[in-house]
Design a protein around this nucleic acid. Structure first.
Lengths: 154, 154
DNA sequence: TATAATGTTGCATACCAGTTGCAATAAGGA
DNA sequence: TCCTTATTGCAACTGGTATGCAACATTATA
């Protein structure tokens, strides 16, 4: 994921502490993995990386910490069109929502920000009188590289 | 789901047959359940309804038929923000894409069509040179009824 | 209408991501 | 430092979905 320059390392940790949550060694480790990830990671990848820093960390702790971060709106959960089973992927909640495009052929994930998307969310809030907490726009299709070559069959 | 008047009963069956697929008793049953559903159903609900019409239908057949319909782009798979576990919900692919809004408090699912959404998809295709096959825009938040009352706690 | 070829089904079993109960442990305030 | 309470790790479990395989049904063909 493009990590914006404005992001402060340790931000997640500071956020959780300011909410009065206990900062354990395990949480610090997991948060640092989430913060330094350059791509979207699933729980097991997250666990593997966390274990490189703290070998006795348990996967349950990873799941619980992810749940915590989700409930506090600090990370977003992605499905990425379920291209690799049913696992979920995580990213720090960005300042501005973006769209995830998944190429059904090469599997590449691309992110895209758009004013139209922002306006669409505004329209939903107004027209539907719906208070948006979280949005997820995922698009499956063929990226520029793959759409020129043969398409996969059924 | 709002089933548009333009929808022809037996449409799914005709579509599959025109693609040269075998039309079995089980498939006919499952297709009719999908076609007549008035809400988004998950695999187990679909199975229960199919069994009312054909008691010996097996759940794997439901999963396999759903997979088939998905691959042929005849139904869409929804997560509905994973509010009820990890199950998936299904709906016939509509003529025009719509947004699913899930109320995090009462669980109500609302659908919404929007020109802005159509334009956004156009922008993605153009600006990202991405050929869209399927989109999924899900929004979690609080509906008009629920946003006025107390919010749930962490 | 019978037959052959191939696609589809049902059963049992396995799988995989994620969850839960509970006793042991550790964080942070007094 | 002690005490309270949150958090952890282990093991076992759950729910949704997928698979191998033999039996069977569908469709094309004769």
């Amino acid at each position: 994921m493009p990590l914006p320059e404005t992001e402060i390392p340790g931000r997640l940790q500071a956020e959780l502490m300011s909410r009065g949550l206990r900062m354990t060694r395990q949480r610090r480790t997991i948060l640092s993995v989430v913060e330094t990830a350059k791509q979207h990671l699933d729980a097991s990848q997250l666990l593997r990386r966390a274990r490189r820093l703290d070998p006795q960390i348990d996967r349950v702790t990873v799941y619980r910490t992810l749940g915590l971060l989700k409930r506090h709106g600090l990370i977003d959960e992605l499905d990425l069109m379920h291209m690799q089973g049913e696992k979920h992927f995580y990213e720090r909640r960005p300042q501005r929502d973006h769209i995830h495009m998944a190429c059904l052929r090469c599997g590449k994930i691309t992110e895209f920000e758009s004013d139209l998307f922002d306006r669409l969310k505004g329209q939903i809030q107004r027209d539907c009188r719906f208070h948006i907490v979280v949005t997820r726009l995922e698009v499956g299709g063929y990226c520029a590289q793959c759409r020129t070559t043969d398409q996969p069959k059924d």
